[in-house]
Nucleic acid binder design. Structure first.
Length: 431
RNA sequence: GUGGUUUUAGCUCAGUCGGUUAGAGCGCCGCUCUGUGGAAGCGGAGGUCGGGGGUUCAAAUCCCCUAAGCCACCCCA
């Protein structure tokens, strides 16, 4: 058996490949990133790109040492004789905030809207919608804590999936308040659950010490019974005045813009630097977990990374999951288009001539040519398989007359044109 | 990390009471068709039966190990 790709990775293949599904169509990926680019850059976002590997410390501080991602899902990068101090990035935010701090982007007009897309790496076991190398589109806004920024961020995330043609998506919106609020809530949960420790599932016993809020979205039936029985109050009840006002403003803007959302008290974020707005984007067709992506405000992150205080908010969605959702909804993606012109010579001595003509056409249109002399039948067959619109033949007669026999592969229409007219042909096609 | 399930040609799959050179359809290449594609007919190439080990006179088929795919738990995108 020849060498195979590593577990949990995918090849993104050209259209027409066997075994092709939507989520590995290279052109489908590009469709998503191009759509995101269009939507986000219309809103003033600028493209940024950061390394695929970063200092291990950045990832640990940026993602959180208590998370599964850091505890057991990191790909470590080794150099020769090196101890492995680098990590393949598991998400995009930490690297972007690091780049913002390191490169003095604070002096750009604030707030600064950035977007990127690219591969992320997590050493998890594989299932539907979950890979070890997956891809995200990522949007971050740095330098403002205004509720309008939050609302716009949520709205843009929805805009992207809407522009892609998805219908069956919904936003779960929540707020985790400010650090004091969350501290109070966790203390409340600890007090509430400790007397009933024995009734919690094993997972939730651990959650209670590490991150009590996680118990709220436990799938264990016993935990859910206990939650109902204890009448657990939601995080939203614990929001301080400022956080509550902020959350109210975000909701108000979204309603004014007709962005549908459900307030979901179970949206939680465990890490200290998360503040206030947190949300997830869901869809029914992406496997056991329905999240296409999520976002949140992280005003404490820049400081956590050793920089100054920079409020920030961002979101990311998984491109593979988005493609699964598009497939589930039967949204058609743009079909690949072949060359506008395909040129073939009928005898060896005219091959260079046909190639030169095609090269000239490539200045303005998509044009391909045959590398060897072809019989007319083979030439048309080849042209058809490549999806060409026009197939042009050059035999001895055409070469002598300076003409080209063109055939429209869809309509069958045929005509002889002067090669000098090729420029007009190209010009027309640009319209 | 755990569990279920799958793995035979480029693709989709047949093929177990273990038995000579492992099959089909589609695709690919060629010919019929030396200036006209999509059709049809004929022919051809292509397989260490995921890998390794074992049982047996004999293994795609039975046993063990292992890898990968799919799905689920956990968690996340």
């Amino acid at each position: 058996m020849a060498i195979q790709r590593p577990k949990g990775t995918q090849d993104h293949l050209p259209d027409g490949s066997p075994k092709l599904s939507t989520d590995i169509r290279a052109s489908a990926f590009r469709h998503v990133t191009e759509t995101a680019q269009r939507v986000l850059e219309r809103a003033g976002a600028q493209f940024i790109s950061t390394p695929l590997f970063e200092e291990a410390d950045l990832v640990k501080r940026g993602v959180g040492g208590s998370t599964d991602i850091v505890r057991k899902e990191m790909f470590t990068v080794y150099y020769f004789g090196d101890h492995g101090g680098f990590i393949l990035r598991p998400e995009g935010t930490a690297g972007i905030v690091r780049a913002y701090l390191q490169n003095g982007l604070k002096q750009l007009p604030a707030p600064l809207k950035l977007w990127t897309h690219g591969p992320m790496f997590r050493a998890e076991n594989v299932q539907k919608g979950r890979l070890r190398q997956f891809h995200q589109v990522d949007y971050e806004v740095l330098g403002s804590a205004d509720a309008l920024v939050d609302a716009e961020a949520v709205a843009l995330m929805v805009d992207v999936v809407r522009e892609l043609g998805l219908k069956n998506v919904w936003v779960k919106l929540g707020s985790i308040g400010d650090p004091d609020d969350r501290e109070a809530y966790n203390a409340y949960l600890l007090d509430l659950f400790t007397p009933h420790l024995e009734r919690l599932s094993d997972d939730s016993k651990e959650r209670l010490t590490r991150n009590p809020m996680r118990i709220l979205d436990s799938k264990s039936a016993e935990d859910q019974h206990l939650l109902t029985e204890l009448k657990v109050r939601p995080m939203l009840d614990f929001l301080g005045t400022e956080a509550a006002t902020h959350f109210g403003q975000v909701q108000g803007y979204l309603k004014a813009w007709n962005i549908d959302f459900d307030v979901d008290p179970s949206i939680v974020r465990g890490l200290d630097y998360y503040r206030r707005t947190a949300w997830e984007l869901h869809h029914g067709g992406v496997g056991a977990k329905s999240a296409l992506g999520g976002g949140g405000r992280y005003d404490g992150l820049a400081e956590q990374l050793g920089g100054s205080v920079v409020p920030g908010i961002g979101w990311a969605f998984g491109i593979e999951r988005l493609l699964l959702a598009l497939e589930a909804e039967g949204v058609s993606l743009p079909e690949p288009r072949g060359p506008l012109l395909y040129l073939a010579a009928l005898d060896e001595e005219n091959v260079p001539y046909a190639a030169t003509l095609a090269r000239k056409a490539q200045a303005g249109i998509r044009a391909e040519f045959a590398y060897r002399a072809m019989k007319p039948g083979s030439a048309f067959k080849d042209a058809e398989r490549r999806g060409a619109v026009w197939a042009g033949l050059i035999g001895s007669e055409e070469a002598a007359n300076g003409t080209l026999s063109l055939k429209n592969m869809q309509t069958g229409e045929q005509k002889v044109v002067e090669t000098a007219e090729l420029d007009d042909f190209i010009a027309l096609s640009r319209l």
